[in-house]
Amino acid sequence: MPVRRGHVAPQNTFLDTIIRKFEGQSRKFIIANARVENCAVIYCNDGFCELCGYSRAEVMQRPCTCDFLHGPRTQRRAAAQIAQALLGAEERKVEIAFYRKDGSCFLCLVDVVPVKNEDGAVIMFILNFEVVMEKDMVGSPAHDTNHRGPPTSWLAPGRAKTFRLKLPALLALTARESSVRSGGAGGAGAPGAVVVDVDLTPAAPSSESLALDEVTAMDNHVAGLGPAEERRALVGPGSPPRSAPGQLPSPRAHSLNPDASGSSCSLARTRSRESCASVRRASSADDIEAMRAGVLPPPPRHASTGAMHPLRSGLLNSTSDSDLVRYRTISKIPQITLNFVDLKGDPFLASPTSDREIIAPKIKERTHNVTEKVTQVLSLGADVLPEYKLQAPRIHRWTILHYSPFKAVWDWLILLLVIYTAVFTPYSAAFLLKETEEGPPATECGYACQPLAVVDLIVDIMFIVDILINFRTTYVNANEEVVSHPGRIAVHYFKGWFLIDMVAAIPFDLLI
C-alpha cells in the first residue's frame, strides 16, 4: 500500500533555474538572501570558489559584500557603492579590487542584480563577478574607477581610450546646418538635424578633445543650467548677453562664444560640459537660429522629431539603469545623424518603425519583477520565466494532490484497515475457520451469522477504491517536481505499489 509523501509542494524551481543557467555559462556568482541580516550568502558556485580561493563552506553565510576579499588596494568608495546597491532595488555595476585567499590582487567587475517577489519586494541578490585585470595590471588604489561605466561593446579594446569628441564640431553647429540641408533625401539625416562627426583615429590627448566618459557625465550638469543662461549661451556672438549692473557675465554663455574659444586653444572642462549641455537642449539648428531671432517656433511634425517616441515608452518600462547606459552608448555611435529632440514631445505622434532597438522591449506582467540581467542570462521568455513566489501546480481535472487534506485522511483510514487485516486475518484463519468446520452448517442466516465476513468484505472494497484513487494521485519525481499527468501517474504506480495493492485487495476469504 503506498505511503508516498512529498510535502515540499507547491515547489518553486526558480532558484534552481537560475543556478542551472548560470552554471551553463561558466559564470562566477553568488546568491544572497536579502531578508536576513547583512544579506548572507546562501549559494556560491564553483567558479566563484576558484576565483577567490575560498571553499564553499568558508563563503556560505558570510555577508555578500565580500568584505573578506578586501585588501589594501580595495577602494572604500567601491565598497560603499556595493553596500548601497544592496540597500536599493536597481541593478548596478561596480569595479573593485579584490584579494584572493593567497593574497593576489585582481580588479573585478561586480554586477549586483536584485530579484523581487510578486509584491515588488527584493528577496534575493545575485552578484556576478568578472575579472577585468590581474594584480600586475591593477593601478594605484588612489585612482577611482567606479565613477565610470563599463566599456562599450562596439569599441575595440585597444581603442576604448582613444575615443574623442571634438569640441569644434559642437561649436560649428550653425555652420554645418547648410551642408545638412543640402544633403536632402540623399543624406542619412532628416531636415533640421545636426550631424556630429566623431574622430576615432588614435591621437595624443589634446586640450581640444573630450573623453567619452566626460560626455556621459554632461547629463548630470544640465539641471544646474538655468533657462535664461541656456538661451544666452545659444544666442551666440551676435547678441551678447546682458548683465545687470554690478553683475558679471555668465561664464556659461561665454563658453560657447566662437570668438572667445578661437582665441585660446584650450577650454576648461567645466565650460566644455556646460556648452555641450546647452546645445543638447535645442532640438535642431533651426531652433538655434530661432533663439537668435527671439522667436522659438513649435517643433515640426516630421520623422526626426518622432524618433524618440518609442524611446520614451522603453525608458518607462525599463527595469534597470543598464538600459540608460545602453541608450547613452548607442546615442554616441560615430558617423550617424543625431536628432536633438526633447523627450517631452507630442504624445499624438505616431511611433516610426526603427531597425535598431535601443531599449529592451516591454516586459510582460509575469516578468515585471525580474531584472534585465536575470532575463538576459536565463534566456527565457515571458511565458517560461515565473515570478519568485509559491505557485500552485497546474493539475488535470479529477486529480488528487498527494499533500491535500483528503489524501491525508484517506491514508490514515487505509492504515487502520491494514492494521485490522494484519490482526484479524490470522485470527480468523486459526480459530474461526476451525469452529466453522466443526459446527453445523448455517446457510440460512447468511452474513448475519458471520459479522467478521462483512467487515472483511468492506475492507476489500476499500482497498479496491484505494487502488483507483492512487491512479489519480500526484507524486514527486526525482527532481522534486509534482507530477499531475494521468499517464505518468499510471506508469509510476504500475512500477511501484500496484502489484502489492492488488494482492492485498483480493478477497481470499470469499474465494475459499
Rank of each mutant, 00 (worst) to 15 (best):
F14A: 11
I19G: 01
R27L: 06
F29L: 01
E37Y: 05
C39K: 14
N45Y: 01
A57M: 12
V59P: 01
M60A: 01
C64M: 05
T65H: 10
T65P: 01
C66V: 14
F68Q: 01
F68A: 01
P72I: 01
R73G: 11
A78D: 12
A79H: 13
Q81D: 15
A89S: 14
A89P: 08
D102E: 07
V112I: 15
V113S: 14
P114H: 06
K116Q: 11
N117W: 06
G120E: 15
I123F: 06
M124G: 03
I126V: 12
L127Q: 01
V132R: 15
M133Q: 06
K135Q: 07
D144Q: 15
T145W: 09
T152W: 15
W154G: 05
L155E: 09
R164L: 07
L170Q: 12
A172H: 06
E177H: 13
V180S: 08
R181C: 15
A188M: 07
A193F: 05
D197H: 01
T201I: 04
T201A: 10
A203H: 15
S206V: 09
A211Y: 09
V215M: 06
M218P: 15
D219T: 05
P240W: 15
R242G: 15
A244Y: 09
G246M: 06
Q247V: 15
L248H: 06
P251Y: 13
R252C: 15
L256E: 11
L267F: 09
R273P: 12
C276S: 07
C276H: 14
S283K: 03
S284C: 01
D286N: 05
I288M: 10
I288E: 07
V295Y: 15
V295A: 14
P298V: 08
G306Y: 14
H309C: 12
L311Q: 05
R312W: 10
G314S: 09
L315A: 15
T319F: 05
D323R: 07
L324R: 11
Y327V: 08
S331R: 11
S331N: 09
L338I: 04
N339D: 15
L343M: 12
T353W: 05
E357A: 14
P361R: 15
K362D: 14
K364W: 05
V370C: 10
E372Y: 04
K373C: 07
S379Y: 06
S379W: 08
G381N: 07
P386A: 05
P386C: 02
